[in-house]
């Protein structure tokens, strides 16, 4: 900010005949200004992106009648931390959190396990028909899930699995995405390594267990994080399949709370903050793997 008043100076005075020292200083000034401008642009962009979060957090610490005020009050007069105590009595938040955690952990575990296992078969074992099979996997990624959610629902209904966790777990644990991401990573591990292990007499299963798994930790972390967050945030699956209150996830619980107490603005925001918090922690811990996972599945495709 302080560099701004100088903005006009470096452009004009660098006329021919100036001493080298002033030219150097002018260049340094220009560099500083550009840097300052970059920070300003980035800060404005970040503010725009983060405003909804600021609004959410500030509202969660207000009284109901303080949420909508003219002009907007970004920092509450008095921080009502009691909202975060009260909400546990208003809705069965513990149950919701436990359900969400159970589903997210189970599905992540199964997806990582079966996905990496299958990816080894698709990338390091050669057999006829393998590639055709893989194409079938990839093709379904392009079919919108919304186009086959009705047949899935009929199947689950026939099997009597609606309104159980089974329906969600079975539908989400065997996705093609995990196979795709892990195969992408295994392809980058040289075949010679696997070949050498075979000559040493290792079976395919021990190659997978002792060589591939340890080598693919970053990819496993990416897949685990992406799956966990997706499952935690999933709305449609639980919305379609889980009807009893005691099976609801955080997302469903929060949505129903909004429906019931639509004027309880502050408390709704408190619930929203709690629903986001676990994801924030997980994201900040594993950010690197997150970004890498997205970049690799995206760019190699």
């Amino acid at each position: 900010m302080t560099a701004m008043p100088d903005a006009a100076s470096p452009a004009s005075p660098v006329a021919p005949g100036k001493t080298p020292a002033t030219a150097v200083r002018a260049r340094r000034d220009r560099h500083l200004i550009r840097k300052a401008a970059t920070y300003i642009v980035m800060t404005v962009a970040a503010l725009l992106v983060l405003v909804p979060f600021a609004w959410m957090i500030s509202s969660s610490l207000k009284r109901n009648n303080e949420v909508f005020t003219v002009p907007i009050q970004w920092i509450p007069d008095e921080f009502r931390w009691s909202n975060f105590v009260e909400i546990w009595d208003r809705i069965p938040m513990v149950t919701y959190l436990r359900n969400s955690a159970f589903l997210a952990i189970t599905i992540t575990f199964l997806q990582v396990l079966t996905g990496s296992f299958a990816a080894y078969g698709f990338s390091k074992v050669r057999f006829p028909g393998r590639d055709a099979l893989f194409v079938a996997y990839i093709a379904t990624i392009a079919v919108p899930w919304q186009a086959y959610m009705v047949p899935q629902y009929i199947m689950m209904q026939e099997a009597g699995l609606t309104n159980t966790f089974w329906s969600i777990i079975l539908l989400q644990a065997f996705g093609a995405f995990g196979v795709f991401l892990m195969r992408q990573y295994y392809m980058s591990i040289p075949d010679e390594l696997v070949e050498a292990a075979r000559i040493d007499g290792l079976s395919e299963y021990s190659i997978y267990l002792r060589i591939m798994l340890p080598l693919s930790k970053p990819a496993l972390a990416s897949l685990a994080l992406l799956t966990f967050v997706n499952t935690w945030n999933d709305y449609m699956g639980p919305f379609i399949y889980l009807t009893s209150n005691e099976l609801w996830t955080v997302q469903l619980g929060l949505r129903s709370f909004i429906g019931q107490y639509s004027a309880d603005y502050a408390m709704i925001m408190t619930g929203a903050v709690i629903s986001v918090l676990p994801i924030v922690v997980i994201f900040l811990l594993g950010q690197r793997y997150f970004i890498r996972g997205i970049a690799t599945t995206g760019l190699k495709g």
């Binding site: 909804p52 979060f53 609004w55 959410m56 935690w232 945030n233 709305y235 955080v250 997302q251 929060l254 949505r255 909004i258 709704i268 925001m269 929203a272 903050v273 629903s275 986001v276 994801i279």
Partner: peptide
């Protein structure tokens, strides 16, 4: 999470 985004 989507519900938080939508409600905010």
């Amino acid at each position: 999470s989507l519900v938080a985004v939508a409600v905010v």
